[in-house]
Structures are given as structure tokens and as C-alpha cells.
Design a protein around this nucleic acid. Structure first.
Length: 421
DNA sequence: TCTGGGGTCCTAGGACCC
DNA sequence: TCTGGGGTCCTAGGACCC
């Protein structure tokens, strides 16, 4: 039996935890670069602000005082997420952090009559200790947990916790769940299923397995089983990511190669640090550049280049070097670059790297680079990039990214808090 | 003027092997 | 003119998630 704990309107709730004047008001949080809406309060949803709306379309609402807006503050959200997860883990150690605002708690081993009081207690505790509202759905599969969570979130009568733990409750819940609300059925799949006469989760469950396999493939069959309470989505317990990407859009178009090289160095350095954090090394480095696709008046160019490394590495110097070599090939004058990124792939455990006979870098050199990277990690451990290679950008990595409505780092940076006061 | 960032899994099709 | 059968591996692209 699973309990899916999910923070309500997470980014907005994080802002509200420190700015109670936002309570009861329509609030949106924007993506990086103040691009588009990525989180909405219930009041913002009520005035039909869609997920992904470009911010410039909402400026008049903000100017009229009818909408509150905040830039995304991932340092704040990450810190509050940790606090929530620690509370949940304390209560149910067998848990899987699924995303920044969601976790699956494994209730197996807890007596059935304790599920509800345990989860109600967690809702109350997270609100009291962190100031965030959460909802919990209890069910025998993760997909049904999502369904239960949806009811907990949208109907006040459940007081934050809904259990779909009997066949009767399950059938009733499935009949009330539109097919496009089902976890695993996306915006492309839903219209297709609608056309085939499947409008609710219940309609899908009523189809035979071979029908589901034919129209939805193997992943659809898993969803179909999960909706019947047969758990078949396992935890991804692989701690090593297979690919790691660091990318950003820029506030202004970049037309200077050296300027772009600074950003690419930064992204590559961040990828290398993420690799080391995972205990991984990458066998491939790739970069991509993108012009502004909305500017039909300007020439467009979307290069994606990659190179295999002789030996898998995770030190900053070599990853940055590879990325800059790719930039040399990818760069073309005459374009305005709006977005760029670095991807490291083909990851392997750092302590199981296969050496190469033909490696151009000696083991001594690499050991030295690895030691330097280890020192960088220690010095940079408070989240700030104080130590960097010379091709990286001076100043904070977020330079060049628009964040005009950003809250202070309330929970992690006392100096900023005092300045605001 | 202004439109995000970071992942995983599955499938189809091509290249290649015998 | 007629032109097999059975595999594996890799890649690109699609679909999904948050």
C-alpha cells in the first residue's frame, strides 16, 4: 500500500510560507528568465490562468493589481522540499522522493487502521513545522495513489487525506476520473482514447488487455493494471542518472562567441559537479545551441553536437574542455543565441571507469585534475560557485538570467533576510 | 521587447552479423 | 525474371513525467 504525499501548488505555497500577504490572492510563479507560468495558486487557476502562459501576456493583470507574481527561487524551494521530505522520512523510512514536491511512502508493515491517522498527522505536522499544505492519497498502486491524491486535494471533506483502499471505492473513483487526469496518459494520448470511446479511467479498465496493448503499447498495459490496483511501477532505485543536462535561456540574445563560451563553461562545470555528486563519470559530452524560435524575422540555427571521451571522466577541467571544443565546431557568426546547454551522457560509476590504452591524458594529470575538482566541491559546498576554472563566468551563475520578481532566500541566507528587513 | 528546465522509457527503422 | 531467415545493436524521435 502506498501513500502519495504531494505539496499543493508547491512553488506558490513556498512563497506564501514567508509572505502571508499572498494568502487568498491569485499568485503565479514564473519559470527561469521570468518566461512563463510554472505554478499557480487556486485563485489564479480560478481566473483561468493556464500553465505555461507567457508572462508578457499577464503583465496587464499584474499592473492592475489583480495578480501577484514571483520569479522562481529554486534555492528556497529546494530547502523547503528537504524539510518536508525529512518529516515524511522520519515517519515512514521506506519512502521514495519522486520529485521536488512529491514522495511515495510505502505503508506495508503498518496496520491498516493506522494509515489514516498516520497520514492525517503528517498533513498537520508539515503545515505546522514548514508552513506548507500537503495532500496524501492512499492506494494499493502508485497510479491509484495519484487518483486518491487528486480527490484529497480537490475536496475539502477529505481534510487532506483520501484512501482508495477497497474495490468499491476504487470503482467509484475510476468512474469520476477523466481519462486525461490519469497518470501516464498525456496530452497526446487522451484525445486518441477519447476518440476510441474511452472517457474515464473506468472506461479504460473495462477494456480487455489486448485492446490496451494494441492502442497504448506496453506502458499502457502497466497503467491499466495499476488502475485495477495491481502494482507494477517499481521504484527507480538507480541513484545514477544516465544523462545530466544543464541549460538556460538567456535574457538577451548572445551574438559574441566569447560571451557564449562563458555560459557553456558554466553549464559544463555544473554538469561535472552534478556527476561527482552522483558518484558518476561521463563517457560522452554534448552541447546544443538555440536561436530564438519565436523571432521568425531572424535566421534560425539549432546545432546539437556530441563527442565521445576516450575515458569516462567527471573533473571540471576535462568536461569544460570538451564542451568548449564542441562550441568551436558549432559556433556560427551571424546568429543571436537565445538558449544553450551542456549534456553529459553514457555515465558509469566513477570508481569503475574503464581506462583507455590510447588516452591522451596521463593518469597523473587526471589524478591532479580530480583532486582540484574535489577541492572545488568542498569550497563551493554552500551552493555558491566561489571557485571555478578561468573560462567560467565571474559572479553568480545566474548572471544574465532575468529574475525581476524574486523573493529573498528566506530559509538559507540570513544576510539577505536582514537586508530585506 | 517578452515564451523554462530536467529527466526516463519505448518503438521503429537502419546497419550490420551469420 | 527469379532474390531467405534470423538475429543484435544503435539511433532518432516520440511520449510521458515533474
Amino acid at each position: 500500500m502506498y501513500a502519495l504525499a504531494d505539496c499543493n501548488n508547491f512553488f506558490v505555497s513556498c512563497e506564501r510560507a514567508f509572505q502571508p500577504q499572498l494568502e487568498g490572492r491569485p499568485v503565479v510563479v514564473l519559470s527561469n528568465n521570468d518566461g512563463c507560468v510554472v505554478a499557480r495558486s487556486n485563485e489564479a487557476k480560478a481566473i483561468d490562468i493556464a500553465m505555461g502562459t507567457p508572462f508578457f501576456k499577464l503583465k496587464n493583470l499584474v499592473d492592475a493589481g489583480r495578480l501577484e507574481v514571483r520569479s522562481s527561487n529554486y534555492t528556497l524551494y529546494g530547502d523547503l522540499s528537504h524539510r518536508v521530505m525529512n518529516i515524511l522520512r522520519e515517519a515512514v523510512p521506506d519512502m521514495e522522493v519522486y520529485s521536488i514536491d512529491e514522495a511515495f511512502l510505502n505503508l506495508d508493515g503498518y496496520p491498516e487502521d493506522q494509515w489514516m491517522p498516520l497520514c492525517r498527522g503528517l498533513v498537520k505536522q508539515v503545515k505546522q513545522w514548514v508552513g506548507l499544505p500537503i495532500s496524501i492519497g492512499i492506494a494499493p498502486s502508485k497510479t491509484l495513489g495519484k487518483v486518491a491524491n487528486h480527490f484529497a486535494k480537490h475536496y475539502g471533506g477529505y481534510r487532506g487525506v483520501c484512501a482508495v483502499d477497497t474495490p468499491e471505492k476504487r470503482d467509484k473513483a475510476l468512474k469520476l476520473t477523466p481519462i486525461d487526469d490519469v497518470w501516464g496518459v498525456g496530452w497526446r494520448g487522451a484525445p486518441k482514447l477519447e476518440a476510441l470511446g474511452v472517457h474515464t479511467a473506468w472506461d479504460l479498465v473495462c477494456k480487455p488487455e489486448n485492446w490496451v496493448l494494441k492502442h497504448m503499447s506496453i506502458t499502457g498495459v502497466r497503467t491499466w493494471k495499476e488502475l485495477q490496483g495491481i502494482s507494477c511501477i517499481e521504484e527507480n532505485d538507480e541513484e545514477r542518472r544516465q544523462t545530466i543536462c544543464t541549460s538556460r535561456s538567456f535574457a538577451d540574445l548572445i551574438t559574441d562567441k566569447d560571451e557564449l563560451a562563458l555560459r557553456i563553461s558554466d553549464f559544463a562545470g555544473m554538469c561535472a559537479a552534478k556527476l561527482r555528486k552522483d558518484g558518476s563519470a561521463a563517457g560522452e559530452v554534448a552541447i546544443f545551441l538555440q536561436t530564438n524560435r519565436f523571432r521568425s524575422d531572424l535566421p534560425q540555427y539549432y546545432p546539437f553536437l556530441r563527442m565521445r571521451l576516450e575515458t569516462a571522466v567527471n573533473n571540471t577541467t576535462e568536461i569544460v574542455g570538451a564542451a568548449l571544443a564542441l562550441l568551436d565546431t558549432a559556433w556560427k557568426d551571424g546568429y543571436g543565441y537565445k538558449r544553450a546547454g551542456v549534456i553529459v551522457a553514457e555515465t558509469v560509476p566513477a570508481d569503475e571507469v574503464q581506462g583507455s590504452l590510447f588516452d591522451s591524458v596521463s593518469q597523473e594529470e587526471r589524478d591532479r585534475e580530480n583532486r582540484i575538482s574535489a577541492i572545488m566541491d568542498k569550497v563551493n559546498s554552500n551552493g555558491r560557485t566561489l571557485l571555478r576554472v578561468a573560462t567560467q563566468r565571474p559572479g553568480h551563475y545566474a548572471d544574465g538570467i532575468r529574475r525581476e520578481h524574486c523573493s529573498p532566500l528566506y530559509s538559507t541566507d540570513w544576510s539577505q533576510l536582514l537586508v530585506v528587513k
